[in-house]
Design a protein around this nucleic acid. Structure first.
Lengths: 111, 111
DNA sequence: CAGGATCCTTTACGATACTG
DNA sequence: CAGTATCGTAAAGGATCCTG
């Protein structure tokens, strides 16, 4: 545990850069089950703006967490899926859920 | 797993609100080992501004993750420690480290 | 349908000076 | 030493219009 040092490039910061922010984890989670088109993602995450969705998808692709597949059809059809590395964030998401539940239970008890 | 729905208050969002951002996880991690004074925290996280450190500590206290203890001495002595709930983020941090290492290994192989 | 371009607001973050 | 107050910048996020 003490092997984490807070330097310019520590594991916490690396992960924050990859999946930090308001949307990336939500997007990755949606793609866990199966590949989705842009319009499908929009429905699953209703309150994201189109701009942010496209922008975040682009960075996820660039950092190697997601894959963009263009079917080259008309009308356009594009599908987003996860790489192995993208799938590797699932345990992190599960841990976040676990923490959230723990937190809420604690806080309900204490008021 | 599919019990996570992307609504206004899903576990991912709850956790992001509690420990999201650039600094909170780094601060919490520093406090895992033992309570620290403000000046000690500043040394451990050299590139955080004083303003952010105090501000983030305040929100961590308000959300029940950290505790502020004022010794009432002169010169001032204040110590920050973790609540049980604050300690509960350790698995999350460990998972982040695990992911970062996995990511870096993958990316080194692929170039 | 997917997404580029533009403009705008809001929030996060930071530097510095000051106080008991 | 532990903060507060103020000011400024940078980044994140969002609304809208436009295009192949």
């Amino acid at each position: 545990m003490k092997s984490i040092r807070i330097t310019n490039r520590c594991p916490i910061r690396t992960t924050l850069e990859l999946v930090g922010g308001k949307w990336k984890l939500l997007i990755l989670f949606q793609l866990m089950e199966k590949p989705l088109r842009l319009s499908e993602l929009k429905k699953q995450i209703p309150d994201i703006s189109e701009k942010m969705l496209i922008q975040e998808l682009k960075t996820l692709v660039e950092s190697g967490l997601a894959i963009r597949r263009n079917f080259g059809e008309v009308p356009p059809r594009v599908e987003y899926s996860l790489t192995d590395t993208g799938r590797a964030v699932l345990p992190l998401i599960e841990e976040m859920r676990h923490f959230a539940l723990f937190y809420e239970e604690k806080m309900v008890k204490k008021g």
